[in-house]
Design a protein around this nucleic acid. Structure first.
Lengths: 207, 207
DNA sequence: ACTTATTTTAAACAATTGTTTAAATCGACG
DNA sequence: CGTCGATTTAAACAATTGTTTAAAATAAGT
C-alpha cells in the first residue's frame, strides 16, 4: 500500500516551493532534501539529477498556467465575457501563485535548449476553439483585427507583470503590501475596461 | 595617468554582462574575473565581495531604467505626446537591454532587505514635474483619473513584459526571433493607441 | 521464515565555491 | 637607484556543491 503521500510527490512539492522562491541555482539539493526530511541521495534516486527535477517542476508550472487559461476558453460565453472572466481568473490564479511568472521566465532563460513544446501548449489552446472564435469575431467586425500573438501579449502583460513587479513597485513608490494590494485590485478593473474597449471597440460604452 | 579604461570599470562592465544573463547565483566570481582577464582576488580587492558587486550592478541597472523615463518626462511636450514618446523610448531602450527587466525583478527577489530607495528614484521622478502635470490634466478632465501607481503599472506592463517574455512566447507559439520581432513592432503601436485611448478618452479619434 | 526487490541512509567523492593571505609586480617620486 | 604605495597575482583556505557507492532498513511474495 502507498503512504498517505508518496515520497516522490513530497519531493516534488518541496522542490516546487524551493525552486519557485530561490530559482535553480539559488538553492541546493540538500536544502530541498532537508525540507522534505529525507536524505540527499534519495532525491537522485527518484529523479536523476537536480536539473532533471527542475525541468519537471518548470514544465508542471507552465502546464498549470496554460490550464488556467484553457479553463476559461472552454466556457460557453460571449467573447467579451470570456475576456472579463479570463482576466479575473488570471488574477485569481496569480494571487495564489505570485512567484510563478517570474519563476517561469527566469527558468526559461536558465535552460539553454528550452524544449518548451513537448507539452504541446499551442495544441491545448487550439483545442478550445478560441482561435477560430476570435477569427470569426474579427471577420464579423465585432473584434479588432489583431494578431493572436499580440492579443496574448496584451493579456499576459497586463495580468502577469503587475504581480511580478510587486517588489519593484513597492520599492520605487515606497508603499507597503497593503497599499500594493489596493492598487492591484484597481488594476484588475482598469485592465478589464481597457482591453475590452480596445479589442471590442464597436460596443458602445457610456460614462 | 589612468589606463584607457580603469580595471575597476572593466570589472563592472564584465560583471554587468555576466550577472545580466546568468543572475547572481547563476555565475561565479571566477567566471567574471576570467571574462575581464584578471585574477579572482582582484575582484575582492576592488569590491569587497560578490554580493557587494552585485548590489552595485543592480542599482546601476535600476538607475539606467529610471533615467530613460526621466529623460522623456523632462521634454517640453503635451501629455499625449509624452505618452507616445515614453513608449517609443522604452521600447528603444529595452531593445538595447532586453535582459534588464528580468534581471531587475529576479535580482530584487534575491535581495532580502532590498533597500531600494537609496537612489531616491521617486524623488528623481518627482523632480520632472510629471506628477503635477498629470494631476492638472486629471483635474481639467483631459486625463482619466487613475492613481499614478496604476498609470506606472500600465506603462511598465505593456512595455517591459513583451520584451521579457520573448522565450515564453516563442516557445508557446513556436515562432522564431524574426517573427517575434515583427509582433513586437506591431505591439509597440498597439500599446500606444490603447494607452492613449484609455488615458485620454476625450480626445476624439476616427477610424 | 527465507528470499528478493524496493526504499532509504550514511559516508565519501571530486569539483567548485567565495574569500583570504602573502608575495610579486608596477608606477611614481625623491 | 631606491623606496613607498598601489595594483596584481599565485596559492591556499575552509565550506559547499551535485552526485555516487555500498550498506542498511523496509516491504512484499512465497
Amino acid at each position: 500500500m502507498k503512504k498517505d503521500v508518496s515520497t516522490e510527490q513530497k519531493i516534488k512539492d518541496a522542490a516546487r516551493k524551493v525552486f519557485m522562491t530561490k530559482g535553480f541555482s539559488g538553492c541546493t539539493t540538500r536544502e530541498i532534501a532537508k525540507s522534505v526530511g529525507i536524505n540527499v541521495a534519495l532525491l537522485n534516486y527518484y529523479f536523476r539529477s537536480k536539473g532533471k527535477l527542475f525541468e519537471l517542476i518548470l514544465e508542471a508550472a507552465l502546464s498549470d498556467f496554460i490550464e488556467s487559461m484553457v479553463y476559461v476558453f472552454k466556457q460557453d460565453l460571449a467573447l467579451e465575457d470570456k475576456t472579463r472572466l479570463l482576466i479575473d481568473k488570471e488574477f485569481e490564479f496569480l494571487r495564489k501563485h505570485p512567484e510563478l511568472p517570474l519563476f517561469i521566465h527566469a527558468g526559461l532563460n536558465q535552460e539553454s535548449d528550452a524544449e518548451l513544446d513537448q507539452s504541446n501548449f499551442l495544441g491545448r489552446l487550439h483545442q478550445t476553439g478560441i482561435f477560430e472564435e476570435c477569427e470569426k469575431a474579427q471577420e464579423a467586425g465585432s473584434m479588432r483585427k489583431v494578431n493572436m500573438i499580440n492579443v496574448t501579449l496584451l493579456f499576459m502583460s497586463n495580468c502577469h507583470f503587475p504581480i511580478m513587479s510587486k517588489k519593484l513597485i513597492c520599492g520605487i513608490y515606497q508603499i507597503d503590501a497593503k497599499e500594493h494590494e489596493a492598487r492591484l485590485i484597481e488594476h484588475q478593473e482598469i485592465v478589464k475596461e481597457m482591453l475590452i474597449n480596445y479589442l471590442f471597440p464597436n460596443t458602445n460604452k457610456h460614462v
